[in-house]
Design a binder for these strands. Sequence first.
DNA 1: CGTAGCCTTGAAGGTGATCAATGTTTGTGG
DNA 2: CCACAAACATTGATCACCTTCAAGGCTACG
Lengths: 231, 231
Amino acid sequence: MGQFTADEYSLLKNSKLYQGIESDVLQKTIEGAFVRNLKHREYLYTAGGTAESFSIVLSGAIKLVRPTVRGENIIVHIATVGEVIGALLMGHDKIMNYLITAKSMGPSKVLCIPRSTFQTNWKMSAQLQGNLSSTMYSRMNNLQDDKTYFAAPLKTRLVMLLLRYLDQSEAEMPGVITLPLTRQELADSLGVAVESVIRIMSEWIHLGLIRSQSQTIEIIALDKLIKSVEL
Amino acid sequence: MGQFTADEYSLLKNSKLYQGIESDVLQKTIEGAFVRNLKHREYLYTAGGTAESFSIVLSGAIKLVRPTVRGENIIVHIATVGEVIGALLMGHDKIMNYLITAKSMGPSKVLCIPRSTFQTNWKMSAQLQGNLSSTMYSRMNNLQDDKTYFAAPLKTRLVMLLLRYLDQSEAEMPGVITLPLTRQELADSLGVAVESVIRIMSEWIHLGLIRSQSQTIEIIALDKLIKSVEL
DNA sequence: CGTAGCCTTGAAGGTGATCAATGTTTGTGG
DNA sequence: CCACAAACATTGATCACCTTCAAGGCTACG
């Protein structure tokens, strides 16, 4: 809990979400907000809880997870710096319950904004609403992509997944996925068994297409990788 | 092309989308709109085209389809009466291309609203934006559900799909899916082969759990159906 | 009355799941 | 800084589910 730094403020200011938003509007949209520091594997919220606030990721990454009947967990999205999570729940008249569990991957920092602030200050700004729906649009596309490639061979789907995560985290080092992804998390993103993911990635490592150490994945030969699955 | 009837107007007025919206606001949100009558299997728009308008379904049903590399088509959503389609594309500053193909199932009627009307008159209404994002929220949930149950046996997924379509079309006759769904369309909704769907449904018919004639499906023993897949 | 779309059934084969066993890395407390 | 636990990674063997291919029948509609 606590305030946030000048760095974090400017991060917000420059994020996609606040594109074209005036400073005084920004100020209003984070009224009553507080910072939360999350440890590795710590929960931001869990499915079933009442959704009294939503969040913006300030650093690190938060995985959004859906529990299955069989105790498995499917990752529906990984939110990285600058992304909003839980906002779609805030617009409703009556208070909702989270359907999704949000869990930190590595240490993260998030800004938690109370529902009331959304109701009073977010709904007013047409620009902000627009930016928000842009975010939703792209997440919806990802989900539709997932559905579209349901029947494709696992290799193909894994390549597509890596490309997506690469896009999300490439900023610092080109060709490197900086998200701390375990094989299990890749499997959970695709809804398959860990072993299947491991077998495919081991093959790619032997072929020299990718490199992987301590949960970061480096794509060495993107072209060959793509060609190998005839995307 | 043409104007719409008083019936259709009151349908709009009472739709979820226009919940709590004043008549004069409604009028503004359909400025420049026109009605299109679609025949069975006729396209409303196709993936790749420029998105100059979006639509509200007045009667019938429109399937939203994504083309696959292998010539398959995955159904990402079926929009029924009162639903909006293509709206998420309208909010962007620059004009976008449809990523999805919209095709009529049976004869349908839609109200096509030009992009410009969205830009000028939709963005202004906070209430409308809220209603819109409620719609998006529920579609997003469906897509996340699909992802979550990816690994479940096909029988389970088929039951869930039938339940969803039942919810969407049950209004008139309880227990009956009035959408004119072919086995192929069920298969396309799940991303599986037609034959697999047929085999499962034949079994259910023999067991007396469902009944099916000329593309309408009647659920006879919902409880047994659910129990049989241990949902 | 012929064609197009839809439905059905069977046989063969492959992809990925499951189970089991074992090795490796990371993190924490003494 | 070491010891130990917990999380993570790996490999092999077996098997079920669903796909694919093939062939044929039914129904609607111009």
